[in-house]
């Protein structure tokens, strides 16, 4: 499992993004995190070559949400063979935007003194959920009504053993906010909101039935391609 931090969203364990075999001995593993409003790409660079590596730099291709390095990739000393270095690269969301398929695809170029290497990775959308994503209740009700039913997407979150309060507090840790909770005929209905860094709002209804480990998630959003990735974020957050 990953790491739950007190002041930040869920962080998945690092995985290998660039195998050494494909990059003349440079291995890169990484993950993404969000802590008190700051997004970072957390990397481990490992030198599996027989020569020293230096002169590192990183660049992102245009992507759906304008993710970009907020600082240069700083490796303070040359990397000797078999040496690893951990780097937290701060990111912002003011880079060039181009819609990717899948939406959360990120293409990265890394260079060192040997060559330039390319890889792509998927980032979890919850790193883009902002801290002020709690919608006013009146606005929620009006927006929910305003977005047509055709724009409502339905998903099943299967085998989740948490109760409604535990669900709310876990999601809030990743900036998904519960605005109202109602109990109708024994089932808990949670009304929730979140906002992405680019200002897109997502409204959610999470239905939890007694003695049923499968939850129903209904999402309303003016951007119809977004809900699938929001559902994936719910799955990731609730099951870790």
């Amino acid at each position: 499992g990953g790491v739950g931090t007190l002041s930040g969203s869920y962080v998945a364990p690092k995985t290998v993004w660039l195998p050494a075999m494909k990059a003349k001995g440079l291995e890169i593993s990484g993950t993404f995190s969000r802590q008190v409003g700051s997004i970072s790409m957390d990397l481990v660079l490992t030198n599996k070559a027989l020569q020293v590596m230096s002169d590192f730099a990183i660049q992102f291709n245009r992507n759906s949400f304008g993710l970009a390095p907020a600082a240069p990739l700083q490796v303070h000393a040359p990397l000797t063979p078999n040496q690893s270095v951990e780097i937290s690269l701060p990111l912002n969301t003011v880079g060039s935007v181009m819609k990717m398929d899948p939406l959360n695809n990120l293409q990265v170029a890394v260079k060192n003194n040997i060559d330039v290497f390319y890889f792509s990775t998927l980032y979890p959308l919850h790193i883009l959920f902002v801290e002020d994503g709690k919608m006013e209740r009146q606005t929620f009700l009006a927006t929910w009504k305003d977005i047509p039913n055709d724009n409502e997407a339905h998903f099943q979150i299967k085998e989740c053993s948490l109760n409604a309060d535990a669900v709310s507090s876990k999601l809030q840790g990743s900036n998904i906010f519960t605005i109202a909770k109602r109990n109708v005929e024994g089932q808990d209905m949670l009304y929730q909101s979140l906002k992405l860094t680019n200002g897109i709002w997502v409204l959610a209804e999470l239905r939890i039935q007694p003695n049923n480990p499968n939850f129903t998630l209904s999402l309303k959003c003016r951007a119809p391609e977004v809900p699938l990735y929001i559902y994936q974020a719910y799955e990731t957050i609730l099951k870790n």
Binding site: R137, L141, R182, V184, M189, Y191
Partner: peptide, 20 residues
């Protein structure tokens, strides 16, 4: 909590979603 009619509105929403 101040009764601004919104509590009731959420109850109606939840009700309508359960028994459309």
């Amino acid at each position: 909590e101040m009764d601004d009619g919104l509590d009731e509105a959420f109850s109606r929403l939840a009700q309508s979603r359960t028994n459309p």
